[in-house]
Amino acid sequence: MSDFELPPEPGSTRLVATLTVAGLLAGLLLASTYALTLPAIEANAAAALQRAVFQVVPGTTAMRKLVLTGGRFVPADGSEAKDAVAVYAAYGDGGRFLGYAIPGQGPGFQDTIKLLFGYDPQRELVVGMQVLDSRETPGLGDKIFKDPAFAREFAALAVRPEAVVVKHGTGTLPNQVDGITGATISSKAVVRIVNERCAGLLDKLPAAAEVPPAPKEESR
C-alpha cells in the first residue's frame, strides 16, 4: 500500500461511518433477497425430499415426518431439536401405511455418502434406496447412484441377519447385495450405512398399527 498516495487523512469517524453504512446497506439488500427467495428455496428442498421419499417407498402418495424424542418417534411439530433423528412415514392411496423412509450417512470411498432408504416393517424388508449426496469416483464408485441394477438390489433386501455385499452375480439369499465390479468399497459403504441405521433405529420405529395416521390433505 506504500505506493498509494493517501489523500488528506480523513477522521476515523469517517472511516467507521463508511464501513457502517456499507454494512447496513449490504444487510438490507441481503435481508430482502433472502425474504424474496426463501419460499422458492424451501419449496425446492421440500420437493426434492418428497421425490426421494416417494421413490424409495414405492407407491407413496403422502408422507409425514417423525422425530425421535425421548426414545420414541413422534410426529414432528416444529418444536423438536434441529439435530433430532428423523424418519418419514410413507402412505399410499387411502392413507394406507406403506413403510418408512430412513435417511443415513457415513464415510464412502472419497467423502461422506448421504442416502435415503425405504423400509417396510410388515415384510421386514428394505424396499428402496437412493443416494442423495456423494463424491464417489466417476465411472466406478458413482455407479452406486448411476447404475439402476445396483438400486434394484435394494428393492427387497432382508436386513435380519444384516445385509452383506457379495461378488457381482453371486447373490442368491435375500440379504445379499450384488456388489459393483470395480467399486467394492463404495458398494460396501452403502450397505454398511443401511445396516447401521437399521441396527440403531428399527426397534424404535412405531409398529405398523401404532403409526400416526396419514396427513389430512395430500402433502404437496
Binding site: F4, L6, P7, P10, R14, L15, T18, L19, A22
Partner: peptide, 8 residues
C-alpha cells in the same frame, strides 16, 4: 476513503 476501500 482510501484506508477502508479494500474492506468496503
Amino acid at each position: 476513503p482510501a484506508q477502508v476501500r479494500i474492506s468496503t
